[in-house]
Simulated scan of single mutants.
Amino acid sequence: MAIELVRIDDRLIHGQVATTWSRNFNIEQILIIDDKTKGDPVAASVANYAVPADVKVIIFGVAQFGEVIKKTEIKKKTMLLFTNPMDILYLVGQGLKITEVNAGGMRFNGNRKRLSKAVSVTEEENKAFNDLISNGIHINVQMVPKDPRVDYRTLN
């Protein structure tokens, strides 16, 4: 597979993702994997306009992408973009082969515990991160590529 980056960012595509991350990894396509976005034509339209013209954006529902990875090899340099770690954990259970997840944007609110400036988690998200770690997947927290990478286990 040509998955270059697996990122969690609850804002999905915005300036950092569209330019900094996609350029840093020479991304050819961004696959947004999120049920809510899949069902929202306005969000889909905005996502396509936010990226450089040479980067393709495709939006999948979570279960839908689980079926795709069973049948299709990803050949282009790809960023998988999620809003939460539970969806990644589900897809790992469906056969998604990854070694690392970048957590870069999980906003704070009253139901979340702040772990860093950019990452706040619910109990369910924290459990999913720890389950991913138990599956041998490294979780790093990093807003932009120039920031230091912080091991999630040191924040938890």
Rank of each mutant, 00 (worst) to 15 (best):
H14G: 00
N126Q: 10
I3Y: 08
L91H: 01
W21F: 14
K38N: 09
N156Q: 03
E124I: 12
T154N: 04
G39K: 14
A2F: 00
N84Y: 10
V150F: 11
V119F: 10
F108G: 10
A2M: 05
P85I: 09
I33H: 02
I58Q: 11
Y90M: 15
A128T: 04
N130Y: 04
A118E: 15
T19V: 15
D9M: 09
V6W: 01
A128H: 02
E73S: 13
Q16R: 15
K75F: 07
S134L: 09
N102V: 04
A47P: 05
V46Q: 01
I98D: 07
A50N: 03
V6G: 06
V68M: 10
L5I: 04
A118P: 07
Q29S: 01
R149C: 13
T78R: 03
Y49C: 15
V141E: 12
R149P: 12
D40S: 14
P41D: 07
E4V: 06
I74Q: 01
L91E: 00
V92G: 03
E125D: 12
G136L: 01
I88C: 13
Y49P: 11
P145M: 00
I32H: 11
L81N: 08
L31N: 07
K146T: 06
K77S: 15
I27D: 12
T72E: 12
I8R: 12
K76L: 07
R149Y: 10
S45H: 09
V42H: 05
V121H: 02
S22K: 01
R107Q: 13
I30C: 12
R114I: 10
A103F: 04
R153L: 15
L5C: 09
M86G: 09
D10R: 04
V92E: 05
V150P: 04
P52N: 06
G105P: 09
A50E: 06
E28R: 12
D147G: 00
F129Y: 06
N109S: 03
N130I: 02
G15I: 02
F65A: 00
A43Q: 11
I74D: 06
I8M: 05
Q94P: 10
G61N: 05
V17L: 11
A118W: 14
V6M: 00
E28K: 14
